[in-house]
Design a binder for these strands. Structure first.
Lengths: 346, 346
DNA sequence: CTGAAAGCGCTAACAT
DNA sequence: ATGTTAGCGCTTTCAG
């Protein structure tokens, strides 16, 4: 309950000096500083966050907005962001849309309360009005995986990712390659899903392979949904692809399990490749394109804090930044080795 | 940038009336209220969070402390907490220990900044000093899965969970039952891990079955680690258990994959049961004890907000609360059906 | 029901 | 380097 006023009194200095000594801003004699810190610790002083924020206009608090905490990619990115923020002494306020359930209230109410020094927007697509609103609030925003027009964004080259994943399959000799991607309706993940899908189609076309409508599935990025979709896809032995490119590792898990339940051996009868770098891919032997989400979270915070802390108006550095990915080959992909063709699917 | 002062002016009332009208506290004539709301929306007024908090002492902000956002159970509980908080108009400040990496700074610095109306502590065990500190800060705390002495806690009966899971296996006819649980060293999850292990041992003993040292494994709750542990356990066909009780679904996934990689069929050659209720258990056919983490998060927030919002000193309701669980039987458990014994492992 | 006035606890010019 | 003095923008007695 001791205020800075008490600390100042006990240290025998003015409140201003106490403030300067405690915050490190402005110059204070060593002697005064010592007196202040001693007094502070003696009184068990903890600064009032709100008073400090109100007076200074800085809250040392960053908002992180994402569609699902519950998905591996987002949780992992969040972990990275959390690390970077803790290290910098910032609080992290989490806004989980839970799909679209809280989208409006987050965007319309919560974000505008002028209580954040900056916002990290993950896999978020804003319409014109929303962008306006958030920029009008005057706080720095950095996006991951957007893109958000007018907002610096970190992203991977999703088209390239789709191309590379598909090309990996093709280079192994596959010609019957399917794709499980995200919905392309919502404004939400549109760019990501459609980018990866475009990459898939480009790679197929570049190899002179047909892009079959029926082999381009849409899922919600969850393992369970991808399982259902894939099971359906693989049910007919005659029309079955020999390889699947899934736009996320969790979907790839679903695909692998569906194949298993149909009695298809991986990779002999079906190759599967995912995207993300989920740890569990190690024990499943999943070939994937790792996008290092933890790293993305850390880097995004770094960018954001640079914006927040910079003195003058605009930022240095390129507005957008392309993050690295890496193809990790494991045992879920190989050349198509259709064995004795006597099995009929269960 | 319009302040409440501008709103008041435009509405032709005093600042006090404007404040009352906007907050709903105190009585305001319908006429004045309408004038104020009209003025507010005309000016696009958004209240300054920090000013409001400083003046009122309430920040509408709850801190959630947990060891890993990245694990399914915590992420899902967090999602539940987020829901309840959003619905109540509260912000959620996330503190992710990332194991123990940020434990000290969270407990020592971040939590004490008097910026939270309450704290939700998930799977957290505090030592005497820490408990003191946090209680001295004077903010309400509710724990999940603690227990935290002196702090109201929501938990499941971990001993009963262990007993029930193990009993399920035994009732199917298994006599060779192993357990993969958590480390029992740290103060972290101690109660949870040791509770489930105790339940396992009790069930074994109650059935007159031996509790073998070598069948009681310790893992870090991750699928990958459980995979390694289990693979080692199952490697020797002679000394192999016919069933495994895993203290989390993610560990159970690891166990199932390990079995698969050793060529063991589930459930014929190995039954596996987990704990949590992970959705992916559906497609893996994992039998589990669902503990409805999302629900736990929502309920914990409900309890916490009751504490936060109550007028006088102490809370109503029982200090501790036992949450429900449910056995969900799927295809990973069955009677032991050791088939033709001619296979040698791997 | 409403207004005036006194802060909430700190920071940031501006002097000194 | 330090003290003085205004606020930051809202809430809340206290009168009326």
């Amino acid at each position: 309950m001791a205020g800075i006023r008490d600390v100042a009194r006990l240290a025998g200095v003015s409140q201003a000096t106490a403030s300067r000594a405690l915050s490190g801003k402005g110059s204070v004699s060593t002697k005064a500083r010592e007196a202040v810190t001693a007094a502070a610790s003696e009184l068990g002083f903890v600064m009032s966050y709100h008073a400090s924020s109100l007076a200074s206009g800085r809250s040392h608090n960053i908002g992180v907005v994402l569609p699902f905490v519950n998905r591996w990619y987002f949780a992992t990115l969040l972990e990275g962001a959390n690390s970077a923020l803790m290290d910098a002494g910032y609080d992290l306020t989490l806004y989980d849309f839970q799909g679209d359930r809280y989208r409006e209230s987050v965007l319309g109410d919560f974000l505008l309360r002028k209580r954040l020094d900056g916002v990290l927007a993950v896999s978020l697509q804003l319409n014109g009005h929303e962008t306006e609103q958030i920029l009008a609030a005057g706080i720095p925003v950095v996006g991951v995986g957007g893109p958000l027009p007018g907002i610096p964004t970190l992203r991977i080259d999703d088209v390239e990712v789709g191309r590379r994943a598909t090309a990996h399959l093709i280079s192994l000799g596959h010609t019957r390659v399917a794709h499980v991607g995200g919905e392309h309706e919502y404004g939400r993940n549109f760019e990501i899903s459609s980018g990866r899908r475009a990459g898939y189609e480009q790679a197929m076309e570049a190899a002179g392979l047909p892009v079959r409508e029926a082999w381009s599935l849409i899922s919600d990025y969850s393992a369970n949904d991808a399982y259902r979709e894939t099971k359906h896809l693989l049910a007919d032995p005659a029309e079955r692809p020999t390889a699947i490119f899934c736009a996320s590792d969790e979907m790839a898990f679903g695909a692998m399990l569906a194949a298993r339940d149909l009695g298809l051996r991986i990779p002999d009868e079906l190759s599967v490749i995912g995207v993300d770098g989920h740890e569990m891919g190690e024990i499943l032997g999943l070939t994937t394109i790792d996008q290092f989400p933890r790293n993305q979270g850390m880097r995004a915070v770094e960018r954001l804090l640079a914006l927040v802390q910079e003195e003058d108006g605009d930022a240095a550095g390129p507005a957008d930044e392309l993050m690295q990915t890496r193809l990790v080959v494991r045992s879920s992909t190989s050349a198509p080795r259709t064995p004795d063709r006597q099995r009929r699917s269960s």
